[in-house]
Amino acid sequence: MEKFIRHSGRVIPMNRANVDTDAIMPKQYLKCISRYGYGDWVFDSWRYLDPGDVDTPISQRRINPEFELNKPIYSSASVLLAQNNFGCGSSREHAVWGLRDYGIKVIIAPGFPDIFLNNCFANGLLPVRLEQQDVNRLFDLAESDHGLSITIDLDSQDLEFESQKINFKIDENSRQSLIKGYDSIEATLQQSKKIETFERRYFNQYSWLEVDLK
């Protein structure tokens, strides 16, 4: 996975709470069996005025000019600013694949649900949790006429903008894995011996759990 150390980008304000993963990536796109190519469908039913499916040519879709992502001022923005509980609901990683493929690198909100957090980290996206008052401050700036550009430094865990700084904290393990961009399966497999030792002891104690499903 690509390493994440520092990122600068424009902010898209999405002033909604409890944005669920059904809204981020609607069901019809969950039929695909690849990990990539979801960028055109992220927020599909808010972003377009007509319904779409996997095989609907994007050039034929009618854009909803009212939707945040479609406003020219936010085009090519890579930092999403949202309200509490962004990414709630279904565990579908397709939601994160969509955000990633669209070009989002960082999501800032007052809080995130756990499965969504894990899905972000697994795909090199940085979810940043800030106090509600700081989020409100960023909304004011991002929604102003000139918009907001921001720099996120994962080394110092700082957000920098308009000569201001906000410190944030993320789980240390997740921070390390983003900074190093490592393959977590490979890292766990390096502990195979430990897992095997655990299994021997475990199945000795709970023998009925060793039975294979057949």
Partner: peptide, 17 residues
């Protein structure tokens, strides 16, 4: 409940981080 990357992780290692 877990995401697909974690599904792969559990398939490969029988563990969750």
């Amino acid at each position: 409940g877990i995401g697909t990357s974690e599904v792969e992780h559990v398939l490969a290692t029988q563990c969750l981080i």
